[in-house]
Design a protein around this nucleic acid. Structure first.
Length: 473
RNA sequence: GUCGAGGUAGCUCAACGGUGGAGCAGGCGUUUCAUAAGCGCCCGGUUGUGGGUUCGACUCCCACCCUCGACACCA
């Protein structure tokens, strides 16, 4: 059987799940479901990234043991499955899982054996005000934004480094592979950067005395692995590497979904790490954009983070999935507002799919003596092509246009009248419409699985819905 | 600053150099199978600005203005 392995990134557990991650999960889920329908055996992975400074910090703030803290958070993310309508057999890995930790240590050893890990002094900048280490991106004009009046201290410590520089040429060669990254312009960005600036080795450990919440470096208990190194390995540990190589070989390589802030980590660091460990690169990396809120960046500090679960509670799972699929650009940033969400819901779902189902199935229930037996209705041929290119929005738009064309067909042929004048012709027409509706249901399967099933059930039992599929809001 | 993408109808976006389109929103009309839903029509744009090439430019060239993204450990 053909196999297909797809994964999201693992969200870091220092904040509640937000709509951006829901977008990533649902997008990957739609592709996973599509592949299943195409006859593939599918492995769909997600999980939580649980080690590192920020988690330790958050746990300490809340007066919790980090393990307890991460257990709670992992549960929160696991519980997205139902409300987001994810495949029931989705795999959920935690970077604190024993099997993962062992895999990471083995992975380290492989890289080390390749001569790609070495010790070097590492300079960190330290803000006395925050009593925290600061990364360059956290600084403004070389100063801590919270304590701009204090001079940062430079602390040196010995860290392990990964020999990223060694893989520059190999990475560039990998990037030549067409379709390695979708959309291509993301790859062009890194490619030109590598060519201009080159790649420097990066630090992959921290002192355990300062930051104990991580995977121990094999053979050196004074060091803990930097959370990047640890987390990336999940993509192979989740499918059994290295203990179950049969399973691993069955699924690898992977199609990865990730946000645009992940390009470097997923396309450069992770691919180099795989090369070092002697493992084939990922199959494909698909980079999506961010969701803004009324044009503004969503962030905790701005307090404008959209909670996907609130939307699900009011509108339902498939309503959220529809919005994510139909109204967000797959690769660019898109804006979210409640008004737009509601507008889209009413236009596409209540007035569109929901209403069409009601009107067709009412005619069917009233006039057909038996459920329509369905010939293999043909699906628009552009439809699968959209998914192959990860153009989920396009596929949703095709469905919407199909809905409109059926509405027009009803208007033009007036089967509700015809059936009174020429019963035979009227019935034939209604059967045709039911067939069309069923075709829509089939196209909806990967995107709105529950709605698809509901419509198919109505067709099979020749009934109109007892209540609207999507009540108007 | 360097590199990249883009600025088109109120909003979101389409348009191989050949009379600027769609969806949503808004207005009018109309059908009754349907969720005050549907369908039709209308409204709506000197295509960022200024030059140039061309018989002809949203589309090519130059300049300028503006917006957004990337620029390494943001986990």
């Amino acid at each position: 059987m053909k196999t297909f392995y797809i994964t999201t990134t693992l969200p870091y557990v220092n904040a509640d799940p937000h709509i951006g991650f829901a977008f990533e999960l649902v997008s990957a889920d739609i592709i996973a479901r599509y592949k299943k329908l195409q006859g593939y055996e599918v492995f769909f992975n997600t999980g939580t990234d649980e080690h590192g400074t920020k988690v330790l910090q958050k746990a300490t703030e809340e007066g919790k043991d980090p393990q307890v803290y991460t257990d709670e958070y992992a549960e929160k993310f696991k519980q997205l499955k139902e409300p987001l309508g994810l495949l029931p057999d989705i795999h959920f890995i935690r970077t604190t899982d024993k099997q993962h930790v062992q895999a990471v240590q083995e992975f380290w050893k492989r890289c080390s054996a390749s001569g790609d890990i070495y010790k070097k002094n590492y300079r960190v900048q330290y803000c006395v005000g925050c009593e925290l280490e600061k990364t360059d991106s956290e600084l403004e004009n070389g100063r801590c934004p919270i304590h701009p009046n204090l001079t940062l201290q430079t602390i040196e410590e010995e860290n392990y480094f990964f020999r990223l520089s060694k893989y520059q040429e190999k990475l560039l060669a990998l990037f030549e592979r067409t379709g390695f990254m979708v959309p291509a312009f993301r790859l062009n960005e890194v490619r030109s950067l590598i060519k201009e600036k080159g790649l420097e080795d990066f630090s992959i450990s921290r002192l355990a005395s300062k930051m104990p919440w991580g995977v121990l470096v094999p053979g050196d208990s004074e060091h803990v692995m930097y959370v990047w190194f640890d987390a990336l390995v999940n993509y192979i540990s989740t499918i059994g590497w290295p203990s179950d190589m049969v399973t691993f070989e069955k699924w690898w390589p992977v199609v990865q979904f990730a946000g645009k802030d992940q390009v470097r980590q997923q396309a450069v660091m992770w691919q180099a790490m795989l090369m070092s460990a002697g493992i084939a690169p990922s199959k494909q990396i698909v980079i999506h954009g961010f969701i803004t809120n009324g044009g503004q960046k969503m962030s905790k500090s701005l307090g404008n983070v959209v909670d996907p679960l609130t939307l699900v509670k009011e509108y339902g799972t498939d309503a959220l999935r529809w919005y994510l699929a139909r109204h967000l650009h797959p690769f660019e940033d898109s804006d979210f507002t409640l008004e737009k969400f509601k507008e889209g819901y009413n236009a596409d779902l209540a007035n569109g799919i929901g209403n069409l189902t009601s009107r067709i199935m009412k005619m069917a229930a009233d006039n057909l003596s038996a459920p329509v037996t369905l010939p293999e209705s043909s699906i628009l041929k552009e439809f699968p092509e959209c998914f192959e290119r990860y153009e989920i929005q396009q596929s949703a738009m095709l469905i919407a246009s199909k809905v409109t064309s059926l509405d027009v067909r009803i208007q033009e042929t007036q089967p509700f009248k015809l059936v009174k004048q020429d019963k035979e012709k009227g019935i034939a027409l209604i059967q045709e419409l039911v067939g069309g509706l069923s075709g829509i249901a089939r196209m909806l399967e990967p995107i709105l699985p529950m709605t698809s099933k509901k419509i198919q059930m109505l067709v099979e039992t020749n009934r109109m819905p007892t209540e609207p599929l999507f009540p108007r809001k």
